[in-house]
């Protein structure tokens, strides 16, 4: 049972619990949907660990856990595109662009799964999504700078959510670029080399830490507007 509780899963579960506490009564679907996404992520992570242990005990009959994350990519494409559409619409209308981009990403992901295998992680779609998320985040910050009106950054839910997302997806670029080399090492040894596993934990803590804080800020924002 303890094997399911890694630093990553603990961070995700805590973030998920904070999301339930802070966002369950939120009037905006764009915020409530984050609870659902975190639930899916937690389920995927726990399933991934379970499948990984099955695979390590029987490498002949069991496939690696890549298929779990391949399924998760579909949700990630839909989730991030929807959230950024909602976040950016304050500054600019990007809905048609986002619909086209997310459709292209899904097509790419389906094509990759069909052309290689669902049991091989689709690094291409994941990298493309990461680049897109980084661009969305930078575009959001660009508009934040351009906007004459200052915001209360310390308490801005949108800012902390985007900041966490940018730090994670931009920071893990090297991870994605060297994914093939790293995955071959992990497959051979069953472990991430050196401090890499700690680095990945740090990124997860940054991401879920920023997201959790953003959910708390959102709760404060809605509470303030209600009173």
């Amino acid at each position: 049972m303890l094997k399911f509780f890694t630093i990553n899963t603990i961070a995700e579960i805590i973030c998920f619990l904070i999301a339930i506490t802070c966002l369950s009564k939120d009037k905006m679907a764009a915020w409530r949907i984050r609870i659902l996404f975190l639930l899916i992520t937690c389920i995927a992570e726990l399933t991934g660990i379970y499948v990984k242990h099955l695979y390590l005990s029987d490498r002949v009959h069991i496939h690696p856990n890549a298929w779990v994350y391949n399924i998760l990519i579909f949700f990630q494409i839909a989730f991030f595109n929807f959230i950024f559409q909602q976040t950016l619409k304050k500054f600019i209308q990007v809905t048609p662009f986002i619909i086209v981009i997310s459709s292209l990403l899904i097509i790419l992901h389906v094509y990759e799964i069909c052309s290689q295998s669902v049991y091989i992680y689709d690094d291409l779609a994941n990298s493309a999504l990461s680049i897109l998320i980084v661009l969305y985040s930078l575009y959001y910050f660009f508009h934040l700078i351009k906007d004459e009106k200052p915001i209360n950054i310390g308490l801005s839910a949108d800012f902390w959510w985007v900041a966490g997302t940018l730090l994670f997806y931009f920071g893990t670029t090297a991870y994605n670029v060297f994914y093939e080399q790293l995955s071959s090492i992990v497959t051979k040894t069953g472990q991430n080399p050196g401090v890499l596993k700690y680095l990945h934990n740090v990124f997860n803590i940054i991401l879920y830490g920023c997201w959790s804080y953003s959910f708390i800020c959102r709760r404060w924002e809605t509470k303030k507007s209600e009173s």
């Binding site: 930078l138 060297f178 790293l182 050196g194």
Partner: peptide
Amino acid sequence: IGELVVYVTIVFLIAPIFIVVYIFLYNQ
């Protein structure tokens, strides 16, 4: 390879931190 990824990752982490700090200061 592990060391290389770590160094590159640290550089890639510094860049968005710089952006976030810049936005914070600009907002102030």
